[in-house]
Structures are given as C-alpha cells and as structure tokens.
Design a protein around this nucleic acid. Sequence first.
DNA 1: TGGTTTTTCGTGACCGTGCACGATAAAATT
DNA 2: AATTTTATCGTGCACGGTCACGAAAAACCA
Lengths: 358, 358
Amino acid sequence: MNKEAKNITIKDVARLAGVSKGTVDRVVHNRGEVSQQSRERVLEVIEQIGYRPNLYASMLATKRHYRLVCLIPYFEPGEYWELVHRGIVRAEEKARGYNIGIETIFYHQFDIESFRKGCRAVLDAMPSAVLFAPTYRDETLALNAELQARAVPYVYIDSRIEGCNYLAYFGMPMRQSGYLGASLLTDCGRAAGEVASFRIADNDIPQDNPTHRRREGFFDYIAQHAPDCRVSDVFIRPHDALFNLRAMDAFFEANPGVRNLITFNSRVHLIAEYLEKRGLKDCTLVGYDMLDRNFDAVRRGTVKYLITQRTETQVYRGINTIIDYLIQKRQPASKDNAMAMDIIMRDNVDYYFDMFES
Amino acid sequence: MNKEAKNITIKDVARLAGVSKGTVDRVVHNRGEVSQQSRERVLEVIEQIGYRPNLYASMLATKRHYRLVCLIPYFEPGEYWELVHRGIVRAEEKARGYNIGIETIFYHQFDIESFRKGCRAVLDAMPSAVLFAPTYRDETLALNAELQARAVPYVYIDSRIEGCNYLAYFGMPMRQSGYLGASLLTDCGRAAGEVASFRIADNDIPQDNPTHRRREGFFDYIAQHAPDCRVSDVFIRPHDALFNLRAMDAFFEANPGVRNLITFNSRVHLIAEYLEKRGLKDCTLVGYDMLDRNFDAVRRGTVKYLITQRTETQVYRGINTIIDYLIQKRQPASKDNAMAMDIIMRDNVDYYFDMFES
DNA sequence: TGGTTTTTCGTGACCGTGCACGATAAAATT
DNA sequence: AATTTTATCGTGCACGGTCACGAAAAACCA
C-alpha cells in the first residue's frame, strides 16, 4: 500500500536522454550552451517520465538570491495601507525561506512627485520582482515599460491598469463593492429618499482612483433600483477634524431628513464618531475596509454594514504568486484575482479575522 | 546592504559544543544515546547562537514518512462534507512535499456503528496524526484515549469535545452563527411575529450535534430581542422530496402568515426550491453553508442571507497545523480556531471564493 | 585483572541540485 | 596543416542534514 515510489531524479533524465546531469540542468534552467538536438531529447524525456525538480535539493544547492521590492503608500497607524504592510511583513518569513528578500518603499499617496520618486527608487534597487499599487497612471506605465524591458515581473495590488503585462492582480472588485454598498444601504425599503455620500476632498487625487470606481458602482445600483433617490456629497478631510465637524454640521442642518449614509473610502469611522458626538441615532451607515476603528464603530452599532476584503491575505497571495514565479517559473492560475467582499455586522465582527495559515 | 549572513549550521553547533554533528543531531531529535552532559552543552549552544535546522536539507536527507488519516462523513455530491473533502484533497499536494501521505476514511454520519468502525479503521492504519469530526461523544473519547496513549496528535474540525487533549480545533462558532442568523432574519423590523425553522428529522442524530447548538444561539437572540416571536418547527428529510412537499404544504396551510424562514442545517436549498415551486415570493429565508445549490438559491434571490465559513480553508489550516507539528514539532499558535462567519447575499455571491493560495 | 555488556559518540555515505571548471570536438582562422 | 576560437558537454564538489555502522569509553562482573 505504501510502496515508496522511487523518485525521479535529474540523473534518470540524464541517463534516458543519453547526456549528463549538467546538460539536463542547463536545459531545465534555460541556461544555454546546449545543442538543439540534446535540448529536444532532454525535454522529451522530462515530459515522458514526468520529471519534477526536487525543490528541497534545489533550495539547498542554490546560491541565488532574489529581491522583491514593494511600493506602497506611506501610512499612519490605523490606516488602510497598514493592513497591506502587515501582509508584506507576514510574507517575509516565507519569502526568506526561498532566498527572497523583501524591501518596501513608501510614497505619499496624494503626491504624484513622491510616487515618481518611489518608482525611481524601485528601479534603482535592481529588483527581481515588484509588487505595487498603481496609483498614478502615466507613472505606472513608465515603470511598467522599464520593468518589462528588464524582464522583471510585477504584480498589482488593490487596483490595476488594464492592458499591461502584469504577472497578476489582486484586489477587491471596486465597482461591485459600490454596488453591494448601495444594495445594503437601501435594503428593506430604506432610502426611498435621500442619501449622503462622504468623500475625501483633495485635488491631488487622480480622478480614476479606486474609490471613484466604487462610487460608480453605487450609482449603477441606484439607477437600477432607486432612480428617484437623491444623493448628496459631503466633503471631508482625513486629518482635519474641525473642518469635518463644520462640514457635517452644515450638511445636516441644511438636510435634516437624510438618514442613509455611505462613504467609499476607508474613513467611515470619522462619520461614525461624528454621529455619536451629535447623538444622531437612527442613521444607516455603510462603509468599507477592516480598520480597527471601523470595527469598533460596527461594535458600537453606529456602522451598520462594513464591506471588507481580506487585505493581508490579498497581499500574501500576491507575494506567493511572485515566489512561485521566481522559484519555479510557474505562471499564476489566474491573472486577475477579485477578492471576496465580506459583509461585517455587529453580530459577526468579533469572529472576523484575516489569517491564512495556522 | 545585502551582506550574506553566513548560515548557522549543525557543524557550527558541533564545533562550539565540542562534539560531532551526529551527536547534535541526536540531541535535536531527542533520539537518545547521548550523555546528559553533552546534551546540556549542545542545547546551550543551540540556544546561544540561535541555531535553526535547515528545513530543505532536512527534507532532502530524511527517509521518514508520515501518515495522516482523516475521518469524515461519507457524502453525496453537493453535500456539505464534500467541501471538507475538497480541502483535504487540496492539502494533499503540500503534505506530500513533506513526506506526509494522507488517507481518508468515511463513515455514515447518522450511523453510530459506522462511526465506531471508522474509529477502528483509523487505529488500524497506524496513523502518525489524525484529523476528524467528532460526531459521537463516547466513541470520540475512546478514540482520543487510544491516540493519546500512542502519542498520536489529532485535530478536530467542524465541532469539538471540550477537555480533550486535541492539538487544535477548527470550525465555525456554531452558537454565534445561530445568533447571527436570527439577527439577519429579524433585521429591519421583520419577524415581529412568526418564524418557521426547518429541521432534519432523524432519530439517530445525536442530541448535541452542531446544528443543535446553532439553534440554541438562534433562541438566545430571540429571547433577547424578540421575546414575543413564535417559532414553529417543520421537519424534513434530506432524501425524501415527497415527504418534504407534504410537510411544507401542511405547514403553510396551517400557518399562512409565516414569512420568516430559517434552517440550521445545510439544506436550505430544499426550502428555496419549495418556495419557488409554490410561488411564495415575499419570504425572508436564511440558511447556512456554501453548497452550490445554496449559492444558486441566493442568486435567484430566494435565499436572502446565507451564512458560511470557508470550509476548505478550515480543513487546510487543520492539516497545516498537523504538518507543522509533525515536521517541526511546532505547537499551533492557537488551539481553538473559530472561522469567520461570512454573509452571502445576491450582490456578493459571485465574488465569494474559498481559496487560500495562488 | 581481564572479559563482557552497555552507553556514548564519531565517521562517512547518502539525499538531488546548482554551478564552476575544464575537457572535447567542431568550426574558423591563419 | 597548425592554431585559435567557439559551441557543447561531463565531472565533481558543495549545500546542510540524516542515519547506519562500528569504534571507543564506561560500567559491570567474576
């Protein structure tokens, strides 16, 4: 029953192909210096007997080292990109096991010049692979071109720019998540009337940013299911509490009847804290992303639905894809990977974790 | 920057401890035949210089083989336990890489004698580790005792029996999932009045089975939030369509006003299909588990909320825990692992996958 | 003391690959 | 034809453990 199937080694291939293991090795790694004839015979034998290199022996013997460079926005504690960073940190140990070192370069999300500088730093680091969030379109295309020229694979996270030759993409389906948000917000016959959407006011944000697509999905749903719904914008600033207080006060004074609220960015906790401060109790508030402060707002009942994806897992899978590609030249099973949209409410928030291994 | 930190090898330990690498190896693996004195010095050196065995070299050289035996209920295609089985199959490749073979033994879920036989088969297989669903209490305890005596680690999935010395447990928090189900069912002021709960009629099912605990959680919520709610039971049989048709017809004839429906087992698709057949359109139906037929019912809109956990991931994590324990004697980070309860609705069902690696 | 048993330990042949190095043969050059 | 260049290939050590084997040392016994 448990007969030990003798493993097929490189020596078997060599013997059957009538060459030495050195030659087989050259073929397997496309390292050249092999005649067309030998090459073909070796490949044939490999195919026929199903030879798969022993990863352990390979890892043990190799002296190759890789360098994975990640380019993500700088963050303050508790912000969205901290989750992404945690995923990177988690993957570091595994990557090190494969002789892959990870270094991370940060840029300021709303500063295009900073992103440019980040791109240059990535290239200067001579990476073997790159994982990044393509915030600015043109700069991303330039980076892609250079990476392509150097044959360096790159993986998108969070959002993607179509038509490029990226190795893979991992992110939440943004448009769908907006659609889902509208569905939850207007569930049970709510929101016949008015909705307030809270947006981040910043001129430097590119127009085609991910939350914008989320917003579009939201309007898709509204157009289909509640065409007479009126949606107002309220602009806030992530780091200007006083400004926000005034903006929301002004809004609710002018629109006292609005009770259905949504934000498309990750800052819904700001809205929740405002509602609590002002004692507005009968609102339905929907938001995004698994920040601790958002979770707390869900626990307090102020945020009714929080739509999240497993950000750490997402990044982890991105890095895993890179590892597989670097080590085994394995193409990812699917290039575009939409992560699941999880719905978090008061009664399941305490059981929601983002873990992928024991 | 990229200075190659020379790896600490077993030879370094041997040199510093004044013994040979053979002795170090014996110490590391508790293989005996080492004097107390040498043993202590080796351990001291290991601690001091932070020696960690190279996993690749170890896997390459070892001739040890392990046998992981899984004991789970037999299933028909499309049933819950098929998901569990898929998780096992998925983990097989990874396990094989560590010289761990997996074999699965099936028993009939509602047949205690079959479970007994399964337990015996597990022991006869001389397993190095066991993963199983503890369906029947006494038989499980007997199996545990024997495994304990043999120093064979075992992992629970799906449910657990407290107080045993299991290596780890992975499953949905059943009671909370019932609580959440009630919360969703009575959301938005629904279910002031009556609720129907659909249960599987079978005398052989143990009273303390997992779905029973889910039901208890449901009543917890009702007692807290809707004490005047009346809950009726409707009994169905998984494999007797005619019986079910009559049972449900009879129920709805006698209780025409009931529009809030829930099942605690995985067969909510049966209810959904009945509702569609009878054209009952204005019901709110809540169910559990990510079966394909349940997903379809969510897509058709008949099931409003489906509460699921990532079953494959759950099993995969269980097997991973075993791998870590067998290969590196690593204790799991947490013994009891409650998997997240995901809420599936029409607008996110198409983006819900149970994948854990690229 | 010498012989026997038991405990403790070192040695060296693997495991399957990667890769540097040098050998060989074929082609090109003088 | 002799020499140099180039393309192709084989050899053998290294990687860091594992483990069987036998040697050495210690303990035991008469």
